[in-house]
Design a protein around this nucleic acid. Structure first.
Lengths: 146, 146
DNA sequence: GCTGAAAGGCCCGGGCA
DNA sequence: TGCCCGGGCCTTTCAGC
């Protein structure tokens, strides 16, 4: 991937609804050339999709937390991601190096809902949990530099 | 915010480029009614923006890590987010409860780049760091349920 | 707040350099 | 590849209810 593709990717990471016309102006290419490149980037999977960026407080999910999980039985097969996928409060699941096996990012309506969610996580995946509550988020989802 | 707004928000969180025509079909409203609602949701800040979802491996940032930071001098004013904002490798910064003060999510090209970034973080914000490397990401950025 | 229509702009093919 | 062009769809606005 070379320079103009990088530029397109960064622009769309910053504004996912930027029009092809604006993209063309920014890159110095014609509209159809940009169009072609974006299609290729999507087809190759470099751009996996588009998403609205939400204000989680405004949509009623003001409490964010990171939940690190560790299997109770280290010998059991590790399919925690599948077993937890049905819980919509889990926004992301990362397999990590270190003492714990996964870090989950969760969003809930209230401390009570967090408590309930943690119980569901422990029961569904047979894990212990360690939770870090987010107090505020100075920034999030910044576009990369490339 | 009521039911149809919620529905629109979830749909756009799942596909940020969904057309107003499709949105209208899904919600059962007319195109202009949907358009009006989306504009209002944006104006109110419920929808903060739109973003392309990238394959970070494909764009050349295959290494993700969580970096927890703690001030060296607990008495010093805590302006770590501002002092770190210039580092583009930092995708997100969360202030958290617990032993550490912030959790950063970073994306870099290589272990070497991570090492260098950690030095920059420690130097820029006068903090100690604890790093958890991400091995794989089963899922990320899932839309909420609402 | 919703509807419907109308104008303008944008998307997105095909064809050619 | 990148550019030009044309048809069709989408966006956006504006009365009218």
């Amino acid at each position: 991937m070379e320079d103009i593709d990088r530029q397109i990717v960064v622009l769309l990471a910053g504004d996912g609804r930027m029009s092809f016309t604006d993209l063309a102006r920014e890159t110095g290419l014609s509209v159809s050339a940009v169009h072609q490149r974006v299609r290729r980037l999507q087809k190759r999977g470099v751009i996996k999709g588009y998403s609205a960026v939400l204000d989680h407080e405004a949509v009623g999910l003001p409490l964010t937390a990171f939940v690190s999980i560790k299997p109770i039985d280290p010998a059991a097969p590790d399919d925690a991601p599948e077993k937890l996928a049905h819980l919509d409060e889990i926004e992301a699941c990362h397999s990590v190096a270190g003492e714990e096996s996964y870090i989950l990012k969760v969003r809930v309506t209230s401390p009570g809902a967090l408590e309930e969610l943690l119980q569901q996580i422990r029961a569904a995946a047979n894990v212990s949990t360690r939770t870090t509550v987010v107090l505020s988020t100075p920034y999030e989802g910044r576009p990369p530099r490339l």
